[in-house]
């Protein structure tokens, strides 16, 4: 199908974009890569009166490490993030997860920030952001604020960003030295949205697991942190037994929905298997 009619603005400065957002609020949608918004327009799932295209804003396509943080701007495309050495250095979890995010032509236009704002429940990066204590730098005509990942993702296709706010940058604290990370996913076709995905980071101290983070996508209304599984692992000796126990706790911690592709039992099963694998791989990458 074709998009419904809308007014189109293509501001050339951030101030101009924020003024347009302030003026149109709920009636407007930001157009970044368009790889989620345009499908929704084509399917007439959304009917914005105004599109504010941010693609010509200058200076927002950075992917760099600054002050101990990985900083990724609103116009950094998936492809730039996937190929960035800064990401591999600062966030091994993001680097491990990125190959699962969509396909070449989608990556050429889609942005990480747009992906976080879209918050599809099966999306990998909201889970990575949650595991990494990422911070969202939001700006509007009336000021700036920072929102942590924990508060940012509020449910299926919804976030804490206001209608007049632009996510200008996401900041991810640099992973602690020695931490291991891994990401596993099952999807219908490589690059498609996950049935279930699991990411894990683990550190080893004195031969025991510490500070593990375990996150899942595709199991509910947004990224899910399996805290019970993390607790089960704290202080445990790394190995098959501990990983199995944590994986069982992760599977118990979710209440997944069902759809055409995967029912709840299958999703729970996937969480169990993928968590075990992710933990084993993450632990083997600790150094």
């Amino acid at each position: 199908m074709k998009p419904p009619p809308f007014d189109y603005h293509c501001p050339e400065t951030l101030d101009e974009a924020l003024a347009l957002l302030a003026e149109h609020g709920e009636a407007a949608k930001v157009l970044a890569g368009g790889q989620s918004l345009v499908p929704m327009l084509n399917l007439r799932a959304v009917h914005p009166e105004v599109l504010i295209d941010i693609n010509r804003l200058p200076g927002l396509d950075h992917v760099r490490i600054e002050d101990g943080e990985l900083r990724i701007g609103a116009l950094a495309r998936h492809r730039a993030v996937l190929e960035s050495p800064a990401v591999r250095e600062a966030s091994p979890l993001m680097a491990a997860a990125y190959p699962y995010v969509s396909h070449g032509p989608i990556r050429n236009r889609g942005t990480l920030c747009g992906n976080l704002c879209h918050n599809d429940p099966a999306s990998e990066m909201p889970a990575v952001a949650l595991a990494s204590d990422a911070e969202m730098m939001l700006q509007s005509a009336s000021g700036a604020r920072t929102v942590g990942a924990e508060e940012f993702f509020t449910g299926t296709l919804s976030t804490a960003a206001g209608a007049d706010e632009l996510l200008v940058e996401v900041r991810v604290p640099q992973a602690p030295a020695g931490q291991g990370a891994a990401f596993h996913e099952v999807s219908p076709r490589k690059g498609d949205f996950a049935y279930v995905a699991v990411g894990a980071v683990v550190s080893l101290s004195g031969g025991a697991c510490s500070g593990a983070r375990i996150v899942c996508a595709g199991v509910g209304d947004g990224p899910h942190r399996a805290r019970a599984a993390e607790d089960a692992l704290e202080g445990a000796a790394p190995g098959e037994g501990a990983f199995r126990q944590a994986a069982a706790a992760a599977a118990d911690s979710i209440d997944p929905g069902e759809d055409f592709h995967a029912d709840a039992d299958y999703r729970r099963d996937l969480v169990r298997s993928l968590t075990r694998r992710a933990l084993a791989d993450a632990a083997s990458r600790c150094h």
Binding site: Y8, C10, L31, Q35, N55, P105, N108
Partner: peptide, 27 residues
């Protein structure tokens, strides 16, 4: 499909492959 999944509409814009069904002509 007109929602990015099939790839039949793929063209190159400024040297990069894109889904032409997910880009507005004005862009």
């Amino acid at each position: 499909c007109e929602h990015g999944v099939c790839g039949a509409c793929t063209v190159l814009v400024d040297g990069q492959s894109v889904r032409s069904c997910l880009m507005l002509a004005v862009q």
